[in-house]
Design a binder for these strands. Structure first.
Lengths: 149, 149
DNA sequence: TACAACCTTTACGTCAACGTTAAGGTTATG
DNA sequence: CATAACCTTAACGTTGACGTAAAGGTTGTA
């Protein structure tokens, strides 16, 4: 019989999370303030405690912001309540009612499909800009060639 | 002998530019304030007057912001003094000193190459995110398949 | 030339996304 | 159990990217 009380995974305090992610503590708390990330737990003295999935989520948020250029509000839409759902989904994968599992999986599928659609829209806009820049580069090189080697 | 005094192209006032680009006049003036765009000319009464290349530049700025998610400061770096250089380059293409033309073309080439490099960095970040999302989608569909049809 | 419709600069307001104290409670170690 | 190092909430400050008036000059048409 496994231990059901003690936490078997190491939980990180906010400063450690900041060190790992390169974010500031203020920023991490702010993301919580606007509903992007709830810490996995709190200590007795109310310290925030984060698990590995929280770290993943933070990195994901960072890349949605930096690579894709989404606002925090948009990121909130993209992530929705994914964390809560994931926890639910874990619980439901313990229970083996296939009907319930199916409901949650279909929901997850839809959400990820929407994410991909949004990302691909961004990507195609970028691709068009790259094409145009390359066309300009081609014209410039054409003019250079006209001048002889 | 061509007319060298009168402007042969139609210049637009700021409100017309706003209508064409879907931006506000305030925003266009703000872009000037931060050095992103100087109007082609001013009227006697100091009205801003824009030409077609100004319109292009504004659309380009918009897409750097919306599609690529660059800040106005980054866009300033990307564009640098491209407008001034373009005007110089036009003058220099009237003069047919190949040495001077070569200098300006090489400079333009370098600038566009830098633009492309930056855009491609963004694009590859996005592509990686899309790949990851698709991997997640695959896993979800795998679980669904396990549940039977 | 009178007037509406447009323009100018100047300046203050706003919202997102944090940074920066301030005042005090918590944890781990000697 | 004392103390440094960490944490908490609360609140105000800042920067970028504009929005929104205010006070007055310019353009074009009747």
């Amino acid at each position: 019989m496994p231990n059901t009380h003690a936490p078997q995974v190491r939980l990180l305090r906010i400063n450690e999370v900041a060190a790992e992610t390169g974010m500031t503590t203020r920023r991490i708390r702010y993301y919580e303030e606007v509903g992007l990330l709830e810490p996995a737990a709190r200590s007795d003295g109310d310290y925030r405690l984060y698990d590995a999935s929280d770290l993943d989520r933070l990195q994901f948020i960072r890349r949605l912001r930096d690579d894709a250029g989404f606002s925090l509000a948009q990121i909130g839409q993209l992530l929705e309540d994914e964390a809560a759902r994931e926890r639910n989904r874990e619980r439901l994968s313990q229970t083996n009612d296939p009907v319930e599992r199916r409901v949650y999986l279909l929901d997850a599928e839809e959400r990820v499909e929407r994410q991909i659609a949004l990302l691909e829209a961004k990507a195609s806009g970028l691709a068009r800009m790259i094409d145009e820049a390359q066309a300009r580069l081609g014209r410039i090189r054409g003019h250079l060639a006209e001048l002889g080697s």
